[in-house]
Every structure is written in C-alpha cells, then in structure tokens.
Amino acid sequence: MHKARKNLTHFTMDGFHGFRSRFDDVKLAQELLEEVPGVLRLKPVMPPFILPYYNGVVAEDCGISAFVLLLGGHLTIHTFSFRECFFADLVYPGAFDPQRVQMMLQTTLPCRSVFTQTVDRGEGGDLQERRGHEVVSPEADFGPHLFLQFSPYRGPTSLDALFDIFDHLPSKIGMTPIMRPFVVKTATKDGVPVISAMVMIAESHITLHIFPDSDEAFFDLFSCKFFDVEPVVRVLAEQLGGNVTEQVLVPRGQRYLQLRTERPHVMSHVNQWLAASHPGVYARMPGDGGPLGPKPSKG
C-alpha cells in the first residue's frame, strides 16, 4: 500500500537592531510562544519552555532560549539582548501564513533589519531549489542551519531510545546541552502519528520529527558554532538509521558580523567576577578595555 508522504513548512526569521529590554523579557517570550500557535491554530503539545541565559562565560551570550513543541512541529526563539538580535523558527506539517507569523514577531520583537525565509520540506518540496545553493560563511554569518530528511527512516522510534540518543547526541557532535531532551509521541491534526524530540544546546537547538506511517523523519541542527558538516552528518546517520535523502546547509544571520551590535563597555561589567578570579578567561579588546568574546555559544 502506498504511504502518503509528509511535508513540513519551515519558516525562519532573523532580526537585528532590536530592543534589548524586549529580548530580556521572559514573560514576553512566553506570551509570544502562546500567541503565535493560538492565532495560527497550530496545536501545541506542551506549555512553552523558557530558558534564560545570563552571566555566562561569554557575556554576549546573554538572552533567552525558548520553544514549544507543536503537533508534528515546533516554534523556537533565541534572543541575544547585548547583540540586539533574535532568531526564530516555526515548523509545522501543513500550511500556515508566514506573513502573519512575521507580523506577530515584528510587533513583539521589532527590529530594524529583518530576514525571513519559508520553504517546503519533503517530497516535491522547494528546500533544495530555494536554499541549496547558499554558502555558509564563517567570516560573515551568525552560524549554520543543517536540514536533513531521512527516507525511509530506520532509526529508533521508542521514547526511551530517542531520549537516550538526544541526551548524548550534543556531545557526540561537539555541541553543549543546556537541558535534558523533550520527547513526545502524538498525532497531527489529521490523525497522522508523529514522534518529536527537542534539545536546547548552548549553540541553539536540535530537533527531530518522525512520521512512522510514511517512514520519514526531518532533522534540524541550528548552531551559532561553525562545524565540519560531513563528520556531523555521519554521526547523525549512524544514530538515526542512515538513509539521508536530503541534506541542505543554510546560513542564518547573514551579514551578522556587519549587523550585530557591540556593547563592550556594558559587557565588561557583566563578568567583573571573571576578570578578578580568572583573568585568563577573557581576552581584552585593545583600546577600550571591553571583553573580546568569541562568536556566541548560546543560540
């Protein structure tokens, strides 16, 4: 019997030159994660998960990572208040209005520079056509976003096995987990079974949505840390049963190094305790005494 294929709509939005006070507002992030699915009638399967990140070793990392799992998809938001930028993803197995999503995000997190993309992932989709030609540049971009499709999916489908994989996966691919995984088994609004896994990492997030009826799975790795793609894909294929039928790497935060906001004097106050107790941790920017942090490690 022919199995109906499943496609995902994937919307991304990168915003620069926003308001630091909004990027630090935990309640605002929670309301946004509740409002967007509600207005679009996308069913959440959990309350929003909000993870503030402050006083890290890299002061520029300060901000909020937040997500909510949907029926077969997810909504994630990562803010960087010192850098005055944010990154959002909305993924769902069906159509929604990306312009309305953009309007809600811009209303709540207004930014002077905004970049959005919407692609269709899956059989007959336009991900490869629209974004497969893009080149990720460590000299210019915020970081890479890796899209994978497994078809047929031959990896584990039990909640325990997926939890174990996602619990150890970040360290296997050189990333840093900042929470334990969320793994849920549910069904789309039209009754199609789906298993979803999510883990937030210091570099951003890792997600997987499995559709057992059509033997398909869609994987995402969004990272503000640049990495060698092929070794990472080999690990992912080994952990998730191989059969990678689509692999696309796209840049997030294009022209990031040009658009980002720097606050060296403000950030120098954040980690005074580090300067006093661990003077070797921070390099100093010549001339202004501010910390020279690497590219952010929280996305």
Rank of each mutant, 00 (worst) to 15 (best):
G155F: 04
S158A: 11
S158W: 12
A161C: 05
L162G: 07
F163C: 09
F163S: 12
H168W: 00
L169E: 00
P170S: 00
S171K: 12
K172R: 15
K172N: 15
I173A: 05
M175S: 08
P177I: 05
P177A: 08
P177R: 03
P177F: 03
M179W: 08
P181W: 02
V184T: 15
K185V: 13
A187E: 15
A187M: 11
T188P: 09
T188N: 13
D190Y: 09
D190P: 08
V192E: 13
P193I: 15
I195G: 04
I195T: 09
I195Y: 02
S196L: 14
M198R: 11
M198P: 09
M198W: 09
M198L: 15
I201L: 15
A202Q: 11
E203H: 00
H205T: 04
H205W: 06
I206F: 03
T207D: 02
T207W: 02
F211L: 15
P212Q: 11
S214H: 12
S214C: 14
D215P: 11
E216K: 07
E216N: 06
A217P: 04
F219G: 03
D220T: 10
L221M: 05
F222E: 10
V229D: 01
E230Y: 05
V232S: 04
V233E: 01
V233R: 01
V235H: 06
L236R: 02
A237G: 12
A237I: 03
E238I: 13
E238K: 13
E238N: 15
G241Q: 04
G242E: 09
N243P: 03
T245V: 08
T245A: 13
E246P: 03
V250T: 04
P251Y: 04
G253E: 03
G253K: 03
